[in-house]
């Protein structure tokens, strides 16, 4: 066990944990942030995506010790139902989900894309999100939501 300092959604947090713990479990179980989800634990689905220093990363595959003192943003850090981020608003307007389990991955990767490329083409959106899996087939609505948020 070790004390680890994290900067999550603009706040400093200290957790006492096994430093080899994947960041995902610390965010969810120690900090109560349910946005990032467990899907595979293998970097294959994108459910667990968070932003680390502005880059979308798979929190299931990063040890918490490697995220120490770096800026982490989770889905909760974007906005809330009361105050949604413009991406979240666009997803609501497009009704862009079914079960919604993949939505953390969709929105966090969309955020990373728009931060770098504010006006992506449809092909660029498809490329950027390829590999972020959705079993329910919400892909087309997700593309529309990202396009809506981009204008």
């Amino acid at each position: 066990m070790a004390r680890i300092s994290l900067k999550v959604n603009g706040r400093s947090r200290v957790v006492d944990t096994d430093p080899s713990t994947p960041l995902l479990y610390v965010l969810r179980d120690d900090l109560g942030l349910n946005g990032p989800k467990f899907g595979c634990g293998l970097s294959q689905c994108g459910c667990c995506t968070v932003m680390l220093e502005g880059n979308a990363v798979r929190s299931c595959s990063i040890a918490v010790s490697n995220a120490q003192n770096r800026n982490i943003t989770t889905l909760e850090g974007l906005g809330s139902v009361a105050r949604p981020h413009r991406l979240q608003k666009a997803f609501i307007e497009e009704q862009a989900a079914q079960c919604g389990y993949c939505m953390n991955g969709m929105i966090m990767n969309a955020k990373a894309l728009l931060d770098k490329n504010p006006h992506p083409t449809e092909a660029e959106i498809r490329r950027a999100l390829d590999g972020i899996l959705c079993r329910c087939g919400s892909h087309l609505r997700v593309i529309r939501a990202i396009q809506r948020a981009a204008v």
Partner: peptide, 8 residues
């Protein structure tokens, strides 16, 4: 849907 987009 709305809370599914925010982690709530």
């Amino acid at each position: 849907l709305p809370p599914k987009f925010t982690g709530e």
